[in-house]
Computed example of a mutant assay.
Amino acid sequence: MAQRTQLGDADCAIAQALDVVGDWWTLLIVRDAARGLRRFEEFQRELGVSRKVLAERLKLLVEAGVLAREPYQDRPVRHEYRLTPRGRGLLPVLVALQDWGDGWILGEGEMTATTEEASREAVRVHALRGTRVPELLLPDRFGELRDPVAPDTAFTVLYCFPGAYARAESYPPGWGGIPGAKGCTFESCTYRDQLAEFTAAGATVHGVSAQRPDEQREFAEAEQLRFPLLSDAEFALTTALRLPTFRVAGVSRLKRLTLVVDRDRTVREVLYPVRDIEASVTTALATVRTAASGPAGV
């Protein structure tokens, strides 16, 4: 491996971070590790990078403590790579880069919690159909870790929302003027009121936001929600699925979208953008009922 040029500013955290993750391939490897890729061949197939370059970048990330190298086969010895706590600390960096790219490269730089039907952001999100949700755990509003995909029902409806609060004064300044941001309380209450129908159809409902568990708990108790709200404040699910975000008051928020996922963790339907909240809930329920009635839903 060629000797790396060391950045001279030892006191600048930005320079020191770039010394580890300052090239194209390195951050893309971290991105794909967050998406659930583990093995050398998986990274190479996804990235199209040469074996030499990939081996060098993986070695660098292991030496930097971003990835852990663990054997999964003895003869011949083969390894897989997993994000360490230090590596997971890069997830907000990936979210910020994606948010900037969606807003300023793929978009027009507007503050928005939604998108246009034909946007490249929407194309990326709709490409989740047929993919699997990686195995991960998110804290619920009580801090208990839960799988976002329910193990005991045929389907899970994951509705992602920007943020909902028990008190109006808790909303960030200017929230009502951000396209697509309003409506989180209405959406959650609509799922609450139709929860029995989702249950009868064989589906669990999970709400997901980047809010803290304590914020979600206060909201859920105020609105008497009877299904889990999951916190993705650490962006594990967001980076795993490359879910779209926007940033307001210094905090990254999930844009409103809905995924219908089956027991095998396969995304069966994607609703994005969500312009009509009530219609999106109706569509999610119809999707579950249709899927449950077919051979794959049995």
Rank of each mutant, 00 (worst) to 15 (best):
G89M: 06
L83C: 06
E121A: 00
T114N: 09
V133G: 03
V133W: 00
P85Y: 13
L94P: 05
A122E: 00
Q98L: 10
M111V: 15
D99Y: 14
L83A: 06
G130L: 02
T115Q: 15
E117M: 06
L94D: 01
L97F: 14
D140Q: 05
E116V: 11
G89H: 07
P92R: 01
E116I: 11
V93F: 12
A96T: 12
V123L: 07
G103F: 12
I105L: 14
E80L: 14
D102E: 11
L83H: 07
A127S: 08
T114S: 10
V95S: 02
E135V: 12
V133C: 02
T115K: 10
A113K: 02
E121K: 01
A96H: 13
I105F: 14
L106R: 13
R141T: 14
T84H: 04
Y81P: 14
R86N: 15
Q98S: 13
P134W: 02
L137V: 11
R82E: 12
V95A: 05
S119M: 03
L128N: 00
S119C: 04
R120L: 11
E80S: 14
G103Q: 13
D102Q: 08
R124E: 12
L91A: 08
G109A: 09
R82T: 08
Y81D: 12
G107M: 01
P92S: 03
D102P: 09
E117N: 10
R129S: 07
E116C: 14
Y81I: 11
R124N: 07
L128E: 01
W100G: 07
W104L: 13
L97K: 10
V93L: 11
D99W: 15
T114K: 06
R88F: 09
E121W: 02
E121R: 04
P139D: 07
L138D: 04
L136I: 03
R132M: 05
G109F: 10
G107N: 03
R124W: 10
T131K: 10
L128V: 01
L91Q: 03
D102L: 07
R124G: 08
L91I: 00
A118S: 09
V93I: 11
T115N: 14
R88S: 09
V93S: 09
A96N: 11
R132W: 05
T131L: 03
A118N: 11
P139G: 06
L138N: 09
T112F: 04
T112W: 08
G89I: 05
E135W: 09
L106T: 06
E116G: 13
A96I: 01
S119F: 05
S119Q: 03
D102V: 08
S119P: 04
V123P: 00
M111W: 13
R132N: 03
S119G: 04
E117Q: 12
R82K: 15
E108I: 05
G101V: 12
L83V: 01
G103I: 10
V95W: 04
G130Q: 00
L106E: 10
L91W: 05
T131H: 05
E108C: 09
E108R: 13
G103T: 13
